[in-house]
Amino acid sequence: MNKKIRILIAKPGLDGHDRGAKIVARSLRNAGMEVIYTGLHQTAEMIVETAIQEDVDVIGLSLLSGAHMTLFTDVTKLLKKKKIEDIIVLGGGIIPEQDIPKLKKEGISGVFGPGTRTEEIVEFINKNVKK
């Protein structure tokens, strides 16, 4: 039997909009994954630390405030610095189209905006996590 996929849903920065993060967390749990939710106000260091401790396969970052270019890439840069290459990082929130290629270049493998079906995220994770 395959090991369950482990995922950390995180809210970086000061943004308190947690509707999306909570819905995604619950959907992934219902899809059979192990979900850890950080709660609000996380720094990149806190997120990466939790990800290591919890031995997750995926980090899902959620942000509405518009600070994604800085706060999402803070996490991927820190992972790179720590030479952690086996964690997939995903992002979701209010993200303009033109920022998506830039985020992907910085190591955010999947970007999910408003209107995304939660199954799409489940499918993406199932496809991209190597087991």
């Binding site: 920065g13 943004d15 405030s65 518009g66 270019m69």
Partner: peptide
């Protein structure tokens, strides 16, 4: 802690 958030929303 204001990092990345200046004037954003």
């Amino acid at each position: 802690l204001a990092r990345g958030e200046f004037g954003k929303c």
